[in-house]
């Protein structure tokens, strides 16, 4: 049992996924929240690659999907950071608790 199998990779990716969710829900810094979302996306990438390698080595769907996820994550981060910078100009802070103009 020295070989690294599918289970090992899935455990890693699941851990990453829940660390990402935990970070998103508890952190109050917008940049850190964005990083938590990136963790979630990376866990998905690991999932796709692992499934592709161990279960369906003759297909390439998973690998392609990963490439697109990485690209879109970059686009998303660019727009999100632009918005956060714009917010910072108003509030002089990137803490979500300071952005509380609207409450119900």
């Amino acid at each position: 049992m020295n070989e690294i199998g599918l289970e090992h990779l899935l455990i890693v990716s699941t851990c990453l996924f829940f660390i990402g969710i935990y970070g998103f829900l508890t952190r109050r810094n917008m940049i850190t929240m964005l990083m938590s979302v990136e963790l979630i996306l990376n866990s998905v990438n690991i999932n796709f690659i692992a499934f592709n390698k161990y279960l369906f080595p003759d297909k390439l769907d998973g690998v392609f999907f990963t490439v697109f996820i990485i690209t879109i994550a970059a686009a998303e981060a660019a727009v999100a950071i632009a918005i956060i910078i714009n917010l910072y100009r108003h509030y002089k802070s990137i803490d979500v608790n300071d952005a509380e103009k609207m409450r119900f």
């Binding site: 917008m30 979302v37 998905v44 998303e76 918005i83 979500v96």
Partner: peptide, 20 residues
């Protein structure tokens, strides 16, 4: 700006969950 920040973070989070 505040609305856009809420929207971009939450929609990224939601699509992350959907991707999983």
């Amino acid at each position: 700006s505040e609305a856009a920040m809420k929207m971009v973070l939450l929609s990224a989070f939601a699509s992350g969950i959907m991707l999983f």
